[in-house]
Amino acid sequence: METKQIVATLSKKMGREPKDINALIDGLSAIIKDKCGELDSIAIPGFGTFIPLKEDEKIITDLSTGKRMLIPPQISLQFQPSTILRKKLTE
């Protein structure tokens, strides 16, 4: 399923213009970008939680070549599905 299909489905369900739905999706992604950039997590009931995970820097050693790489720290966005979604998917 692509963005276009989702926008079409939502505009039908909500009775609003696809343009408005696109604006709402853009707004939602902007909030996720801002809040997760500040290391805040966003919980959506019945769906799951978006969690920014900060990993410290580390040294990785390639056993075959013996070369060591210094991997810098990073913040990655993780998604943790809620129990309702988990149940739906495992059924």
Binding site: L10, K13, D26, L28, I44, F47, L89
Partner: peptide, 22 residues
């Protein structure tokens, strides 16, 4: 509604791709 649509698609075994979200 937005996340209900996504979860429905996931339960059907579909992959959902949303621009600017993932």
């Amino acid at each position: 509604e937005f996340f209900a649509v996504i979860s429905d698609a996931l339960t059907k075994g579909e992959t959902v791709k949303i621009k600017k979200l993932g």
